[in-house]
Amino acid sequence: MKMEGTSLLELRNVTKIFKGGGVYGGKEFRAVDEVSFSMPSEPSILALVGESGSGKTTIANMILGFLKPDGGDIFFKGESVTSWLQRKPKEYRRKVQAVFQDPYEIYNPSYRVDRILKLTVRKFNLAASEAETMRLIYEALEALELRPQDVLGRYPHQLSGGERQRLMLARILLIKPELIVADEPVSMLDVSLRAVFLNYLEEFKSKYGISCLYITHDFNTAYYIADKAVVLNLGRVVEIGSMEEIVLRPLHPYTQMLISSIPLPDPKMRWKERLELRKLQVKEIRPEKGCPFALRCPHATKKCEEVKPPLIDVGGGHMVACHLYG
């Protein structure tokens, strides 16, 4: 079925426009503006990095089919998501799974863990018999280092935060999707749990071949697990490259600013120069034309305010949307 070389996921000029109410003066609001990127067919972790308002969650919602793009299209294994959802929605849901921020709210509180997992098996027809169902559930729980006899009879609220997180991952492992869309999955977790979670995402990729679109504002965790990164600013892709390249040799002035502002857990590597506070914008402004970063960019010229810079390849798959490199 699968064509050689077909991307697992591909976004082509995806645009999402929200019609604003009072706050935006009834104007159109381009939450996602002609975004294109892809994930390869072999297992990988792609970090989609952006600050609040960058459109990263809107992109996740479109990939998961909760929102429809107003322009462009999203392809999963060469077929558009719209078509997947019309023709075989269940199969799409099995192949593309979401991981949420708060693993507490996704469970029905009146169901015990065994029922939650059995329903999952039944919904996706993962097993032919009761015995096979239980075997799959045991396998998945044990892979996440949960003791089945300890958790199966309990209600979600009786589990600790760490156990709920593992249970959610066990459920994913049960389903064995091809792609996980994880929107800020660790932002609410304590660091000691965060490490464990990130290591599981890596294990899912290397051991079970599950790819992951890791959506975050945090370069530190992205750098830890992702192979490639897409950097968003106000709904537009500003830079794409290997995770290593983006962190060590960021090209776009926006990426450079983000990378240099990350607090490092090392008192000897404090920020050297001050951010010039007065120059920073006071308001949230979304320019209608030109480069989204032009207002804050130290290198901005007249051209940057007028013309949207296209995403160009500067070599080795490192792409940047900036007139400095045009």
Binding site: R194, A195, V196, N199, N220, Y223, V247, I259, L264, P265
Partner: peptide, 16 residues
Amino acid sequence: LIDSIPSIAKKKMIKG
């Protein structure tokens, strides 16, 4: 706690 923090300054295995 300190060994659990991923950082762009250093690529290392974190265990939690």
